[in-house]
Design a protein around this nucleic acid. Structure first.
Lengths: 187, 187, 187, 187
DNA sequence: CCTTAATCGAGACGGTACGTCGTGTCTTTAT
DNA sequence: ATAAAGACACGACGTACCGTCTCGATTAAGG
């Protein structure tokens, strides 16, 4: 016979899975609360009890699917390698969700760079400190603007670019812009 | 009695004015084809005959309102002044429409950086050539990535920032990032 | 604040009342689903959930307003009186709704005589049987065509006539056509 | 090369042919002025200049297609044969256009029995006079109601019946209702 | 262990907007 | 002057979702 009725965390996981599946199936613009509810075989109220609108639901679904933001700072031995690794992580995460989702969330949820920027600032500072310790660069004490320069440029590319960001672009950002600037920082 | 029935270009101008007024009045998220049609005292069909959806309509309205993109490259005598002037123009245009409009258009119209970037590339190249002639910088022959660096960074700020872009930010972009890089370009 | 939200039968009654009121207010040709929905202060979907189109809605409204078809066979003591009474009932019901409604329904709902005819057949048979028992007529065993003759003629008049059916017409149908025929039925 | 532009009567004939073709193709409910205009490869104004609405257009198209109403009173030698012939003509004309057209016209054009009745009255009087001369019936001086009885009954059947009128129905009307009544008319 | 309160699954409700269709009028261009 | 073509102002269509509300059914927890 019928299994038991879902509740609590188990239900919530199902809801987020359904939302993620719907997102993959129809895309953000066509994702509706009704569609998600139907896919999860439940009512809309169950969704609205937890998330105020589809933007919040989708954000939650993304977090649920991709796990926590990768804080594990990679350590490749060189500043260049480290920076490229970080940019890689970012572009992979982006590829998974797709540009239309990002745009939709920006439009509906006031999705902004604030949170992301702060995280990235911390990561990049760690990288620079490691590089300074290794003697690769004169100092890790660079302006904030410079600190977030590579990730800002990549984000610009990811959000507004017409095609997926390629490997060459990442290297260009690092080699043409970022490394020259940190190398010439006053001692 | 009313005069004759509106047609062609005269009607189109009215429609775009109505769209712009509606945009100012209710904001992009609440702008509807019905609302614009009502404001222009006509039917929806007249709108749909010209623009496939509200995104196209709004883009047309913006173009109609703000005139052509400012091609007049400013000439202040220094590369720093010229670059700042260009960034100023960009941020002013942005302030006029508001961030929610940009986000909405990105979500609905596949609004991308392509067109804008090309324009900016040309403008910046002109500035650099002038500066090289003046002897301010060793060469105007710099990588494309560097060429669009200031405008890319500003755009990133405008699209994803949490607050209007301030004067300080513009100067920072120019003084901390851009000028150092062009100055050290190989002779 | 408003009381609770309407549902089920209570709501349905309101909808039918609204439809009837709209019918009286603007007439069938100008009756729209939107108008009825507005008058009932609800959305169109609520109407479409119940009736596929305005024809079905109006038919339901008529039934709701006029109650069940008058089965109570009148008993006046004479076949002439009984028949006239039946014709009266018919013409009254017609006067209430108006000719345009009938025509509209015929055009849109495939409104036909079938149902009505069967009902009338039963009623008339009862009248004749009573008359035969009283000895007024030789037999109640007459052809079906003769049985529905008076109601058919009246319906023809009601549906296609240019003006409301008058008292004289009813009497003419009974005295000139119907009674002579039943009186001469073979014993 | 294109031939010359159509005008006057030639154009009008084309329009009516187009209307008739459209009627056969999509049926009355789906017939639109736009459709007819398109089929006739002309503009709507050309139609509206001649007929106020689709009802008038269709009536004109029917007249144009079926020619004048058959006034030629048939002469079969007996009242029964003559009457049946008349009923035949009526039911044939009906079959050609279809019930939905009749209903649509009744709803939109105030199509009524008036005109038709008068015509039929004249025809039937002729038939009766001939029969009286032949000695078939005592007198041709019968009430109007009786005169139009057969055609009224047939019309009732044609307009409200659920299926095409069959041969048996015509004979029933004549043999069971009409002939008995005229035979017993007082001398 | 049995009541009791909460939540689930389902779907109706009051709304808003969608994008399309047809009406009847009006305008323009070209015979 | 009028045919051909089509735009215009208008109104309604039937659909899709929104976010809220209601209704039983089912569970988990507390007395």
């Amino acid at each position: 016979m019928e299994s038991t009725r879902r509740r609590g965390a188990a239900l919530e996981a199902d809801l987020l899975d359904a939302a993620w599946a719907e997102l993959k199936a129809v895309g953000y613009p066509k994702l509706t609360m009704e569609g998600v509810a139907a896919r999860a075989r439940t009512g809309k109220q169950v969704l609205y009890r937890r998330w105020r609108n589809r933007a919040e639901l989708v954000i939650a679904a993304m977090r649920h699917h991709s796990g926590r933001i990768a804080d594990r700072v990679p350590d490749t031995g060189t500043l260049r390698g480290d920076t490229l690794a970080v940019l890689h992580l970012m572009s992979e995460r982006q590829r998974e969700v797709g540009q239309d989702v990002i745009h939709g969330l920006m439009a509906e949820a006031g999705f902004r760079k604030a949170e992301a920027t702060e995280t990235m600032q911390g990561i990049m500072r760690t990288l620079l400190e490691r590089a300074a310790e290794r003697g690769e660069i004169p100092t890790a004490d660079v302006p904030t603007r410079l600190l977030t320069l590579p990730t800002d440029l990549l984000r610009h590319e990811m959000v507004l670019g017409d095609e997926p960001v390629g490997e060459g672009t990442l290297e260009e950002i690092v080699d043409v812009i970022f490394l020259p600037l940190v190398s010439m920082s006053a001692p």
